[in-house]
């Protein structure tokens, strides 16, 4: 008699984040019950009280590392996970909270809190891969639901997820969008931004703001020169690269090239 095969155990972990990427799993309204059939949702506190202790076959990690406690916790998560996949910009590049990396976190604490001496926060917000080996990084702020289902499906059959590393420009072409920069002079980060959102912003007459982070081989200085021709000053250039993926090497470097 064949042994009953145990369903792979899924865990969903949260670090510094908005919860939006793990919510994406609950937003898979048509697929959620099927995912629960294929996987044992063993640890997902946002969705269930039940918690299976021990090790997990697949860990989805949301959020960045901003405290010493979390820096220790991610080591424990890694030890207990066969595969560890980061979901979203916080986990992959530090998130919007990585703006502290360009400032003084003690000054930040003084601005927000009456008693900054109670605050225990690291000077930087960093990606999970800066702390432990990561098996796959899913981009986006937030991640795309379709890509999340692809990542989980690929894991279940043991193949690499198919998530194109080209730029948002290609997605615009695929959608048949008119280029907002060429046609309307709208500043757009599409040429340097990782695909995955299906070019939502240009489809809504807006320039891409880079929430999926840099593509594989971005030529940001060339884009900055073009944005400069469109009238963007240095301050705006610094701002545009310094948002939800400010901590990614390519965007950090380009933002620093344009300003302090």
């Amino acid at each position: 008699m064949a042994a009953v095969r145990r369903k792979p155990r899924l865990a969903v972990w949260k670090f510094a984040s908005c919860d939006g990427c793990q919510l994406t799993l609950l937003d898979c309204e048509d697929e959620l019950l099927a995912v629960a059939e294929a996987l044992d949702i063993a640890y997902f506190p946002e969705a269930t009280r039940a918690a299976v202790k021990g090790c997990y076959d697949l860990s989805l990690v949301e959020g960045s590392i901003t405290t010493t406690h979390d820096a220790e916790r991610i080591q424990d998560v890694r030890r207990r996970s066969r595969a560890l996949i980061t979901i979203g910009a916080c986990a992959t590049s530090g998130g919007i909270q990585a703006l502290r990396n360009f400032a003084d976190v003690r000054e930040y604490a003084q601005v927000v809190y009456a008693r900054p001496d109670y605050i225990h926060s690291l000077a930087t917000s960093t990606a999970i891969a800066d702390h432990v080996p990561v098996d796959f990084e899913l981009r986006g702020c937030p991640i795309n639901k379709r890509q999340l289902v692809e990542v989980i499906s690929a894991f279940l059959v043991g193949r690499r997820p198919v998530t194109p590393a080209h730029s948002v420009c290609i997605e615009c072409k695929l959608r048949g969008n008119v280029c907002v920069t060429v046609a309307h002079g709208t500043p757009c980060l599409g040429p340097v931004t990782h695909a995955g959102c299906d070019a939502i912003c240009p489809s809504y007459d807006r320039g891409c703001y880079g929430c999926y982070g840099p593509m594989e081989s971005p030529n940001a200085p060339a884009l900055s020169a073009k944005l400069g021709e469109l009238g963007m000053g240095q301050r705006d250039l610094t701002r545009i690269y310094r948002t939800f993926n400010a901590g990614s090497p390519a965007f950090r470097k380009e933002s620093e090239r344009n300003g302090p």
């Binding site: 919007i96 909270q97 976190v105 601005v111 927000v112 809190y113 926060s121 701002r239």
Partner: peptide
């Protein structure tokens, strides 16, 4: 929940960025 200091990091940003941030 670890603090993320939104009120501090919003300073110096353009008014138009507030809804996205």
């Amino acid at each position: 929940e670890p603090p993320r200091f939104f009120e501090a990091l919003l300073r110096g940003r353009a008014y138009s960025e507030a809804p996205d941030i």
